[in-house]
Simulated assay, not measured.
Amino acid sequence: MESTAVRVEGLTKSFGATRALDGVDLEIPAGTILGLLGPNGAGKTTTVRILTTLLRPDAGRAVVAGYDVVEQPQQVRRAIGLSGQYAAVDENLTGSENLYLVGRLYGLSRKAARSRATELLARFKLTEAAERPSKTYSGGMRRRLDLAGALVSAPQVVVLDEPTTGLDPRGRLDTWSMISELVADGATVLLTTQYLEEADQLADRIVVIDRGRAIAAGTADELKSQVGGERLQVVVSRPEHLPFAQQVLADVGIAEPQVEEHVRRVAAPVSGGTKALVEAVRRFDAEGVELLDVGLQRPTLDDVFLQLTGHLAEEETVEEPKKGRRSRRKDKNEGESA
């Protein structure tokens, strides 16, 4: 496999008057995780559909595992695994039968498909439920089964489209662990998510996409550095101490403090973090103001996203429009021609 597993250049796609993608560029080195971060409707799923040959771009070029997604779709499909936003499992089949079916569709022999199904069921902690219909599985179990299905062919590139949507915290942590294991085994992962913490935890590099455009790229630390330095935050024990706290942080900070009266919290960006912290604590002690909490915080990806886009990551932007019968027929024909 080439050193670059996925390369996207100038990708555009419109649905009627709505431009879902407007010249997106991406590059994913082999054996790494790229987090494609953005709110609902930003263009993440449209990008995934193009990279997995389910949709043709209007312009631009995309190469996955060395194959052009438009000119060599069959080769791309053999080289990738896909887990979409919703678990794509047959609820009337058992967990074992679901994975066996996928293996046979990929061209594995009966013996190899059964062996691979058994291996993946064990890896994803589904052995005890292997012979139960998947309709009896919990949401987290169906998600794990779907992720296992994406790995049946041992793909070079794994595309995960918001893989933890709808999972509880335990299921999300388990999925994060599984994604990390994929990369440790040599796979390359494209992870789309609107969960900033998820991108922070998993991605080697992050591309922020908003309204169909890639507006920033870098490591989590590089993106956070765009916001500025550290923030000093204090929580006072008594509401009447808020004005004093605001004055102290205005003196030691480099911008106007933010006050949250309902939780008695005051925060402000500072330079020379530790020095500012010590000076603030000294002044609070001298005045006899009790602090319930005090500390320095680095910017979060939430701060990055808010500064870059002007809105929170969970807010929706332009949705991909609902398609009528004519549009659906066109996409079906495109898929067949691919």
Rank of each mutant, 00 (worst) to 15 (best):
V158Y: 09
G335W: 15
I209M: 07
T18C: 04
R283I: 00
I254K: 08
R283P: 00
L249Q: 08
A184Y: 05
A203C: 11
G31F: 10
D146T: 04
G272S: 07
V102C: 04
G228R: 11
S83R: 06
A268R: 12
V70D: 10
A59Y: 11
V8I: 09
L232M: 11
G149I: 05
V183Y: 02
L82Y: 15
P133L: 09
G171L: 12
P39C: 07
T317Y: 13
P29M: 05
V64F: 03
E91I: 01
N333S: 08
E128P: 03
L34D: 06
D200S: 02
V235Y: 03
K135M: 13
G140C: 10
S83M: 13
R205C: 10
P57Q: 10
T164H: 09
S115Q: 08
A17I: 15
R328W: 11
S153Q: 14
T136V: 08
L190N: 02
G171C: 11
V183H: 03
Q233A: 11
D174Q: 06
L306Q: 00
A286M: 03
G31P: 05
D161Y: 10
M178F: 15
E181F: 01
S138R: 04
V252H: 04
G288N: 01
R110M: 05
F305E: 00
E315Q: 12
R61A: 09
Q156K: 11
R325H: 13
L108D: 03
Q246H: 05
R7I: 09
Q246Y: 04
E97G: 05
D25S: 04
V69N: 12
R123Y: 06
R238S: 07
E240P: 11
A148M: 07
G149E: 04
E162A: 00
G186P: 13
L34H: 10
Q85L: 10
F284W: 09
T317N: 10
V278F: 06
V281M: 14
I254R: 08
G107H: 04
D185G: 10
D331C: 14
I209V: 12
D293I: 02
S337E: 15
V289Q: 12
G95T: 13
D58A: 02
T52G: 02
Y137K: 01
V304M: 06
G212F: 06
R143M: 00
V89Q: 13
A65I: 05
A338D: 15
T164L: 07
E261I: 00
D68W: 08
L120F: 01
P155R: 13
T12W: 10
V64R: 12
R211L: 06
D204Y: 15
F124I: 13
E198F: 08
K111E: 08
N40Y: 12
L160V: 15
L167K: 01
A20I: 03
A113W: 13
R144H: 06
A280D: 05
S115M: 09
T193S: 07
D303W: 12
R231P: 07
A214R: 02
P257I: 00
A286H: 09
P39A: 09
R329M: 15
T317W: 12
E290A: 12
R61P: 15
L167F: 00
A20V: 01
R104S: 03
V157K: 01
V234E: 00
R283T: 00
E260G: 08
L101T: 10
A203W: 11
E240M: 09
A154M: 13
G43R: 06
S134W: 10
V183P: 00
N40G: 12
E9A: 11
N333I: 07
E119Q: 06
Q258S: 14
R211P: 03
V152Y: 01
L291T: 07
E279R: 11
T118E: 14
